[in-house]
Design a protein around this nucleic acid. Structure first.
Lengths: 149, 149
DNA sequence: TTAAATGCAAACTATTTGCACGTAA
DNA sequence: TTACGTGCAAATAGTTTGCATTTAA
């Protein structure tokens, strides 16, 4: 239930980045690795404190901050004024359901033949990311039901 | 200096959407039409109150809210935990300079041959938007100077 | 005339910060 | 042992809300 990364592997990844390993940081990173729902700070906090209170909110912020600095996690910034986090750092895109707000990862190659026309001169591209907005199955269903009550 | 939309045209657009025209709303929308820098609420507030205090922050929030509801403006959500606004509502992409934070509009066709591979089933696409991150001329220059002092 | 908008201040939410205490290395 | 991390609480920033007053139509 804790994901497929072994404790030692997780510690190893953090050590390689020069991070001191504390129970709080470990819990944050392990939790993030085990889920794919792009949780917020509160989501993570709730989850790691579920059985045994282990970390404060400030520590979760702090842990996420250093994990992001060393490249083990990244922020997912969409709408809503909340920062979400993701332990999947390879380039990929996101699908956001406008009904329920769920966020799904999209494989990098979900867009094919993506070619950048010359940008207005003076710009150098480092990265790009596509946010696809739409509706998931369940929300489509509910919408149809609303219109035919 | 106030952009190329005439007063009457701006009022007309707002009326067509069923909006009551108040000095505050008018100022907010006119200001947004006249600029292309994706301003924040504070940016707009400062600008419309520059010569003569005309609107409170709450009114700017309120004006932007209704303007967005009727589709005359849209939110631009990038990083930084601030909401930016844009009176250009046609689909387009954004370039964000990671150095100075400036945001440039990119024409819709700046990506050519963009084809969506089938999504994982159960998703219906309403819209998508590409955020390109990189460096503008000036910031590239500064970076080079930093490395060769 | 009157439903709707404004302005102020207080409330709320997400995040950051300062500092005394605790702990991983 | 000690530099670094944690926890708490206070501070900050962006945004929303309640309510009395004003105003566009």
């Amino acid at each position: 239930m804790e994901g497929h990364n072994k404790t030692a592997e997780i510690s190893q990844q953090m050590k390689e980045k020069g991070l001191r390993i504390t129970p709080q940081r470990f819990a944050v990173y392990a939790n993030l690795l085990s889920r794919c729902d792009h949780p917020t700070v509160d989501d993570i906090l709730t989850e790691i404190n579920r059985e045994l209170p282990i970390a404060s909110k400030a520590s979760v912020y702090s842990a996420l901050s250093v994990l992001r600095e060393v490249g083990l996690v990244r922020e997912v910034l969409l709408d809503e004024g909340v920062t979400r986090y993701d332990a999947k750092v390879e380039p990929h895109h996101h699908f956001v359901c406008e009904g329920c707000g769920q966020i799904k990862d999209l494989a990098w190659d979900v867009f094919k033949n993506l070619q950048l026309n010359p940008l207005p001169s003076g710009f150098q591209v480092n990265a790009y990311e596509i946010t696809v907005k739409g509706c998931c199955d369940r929300c489509n269903l509910e919408r149809v039901e609303d219109q035919n009550p």
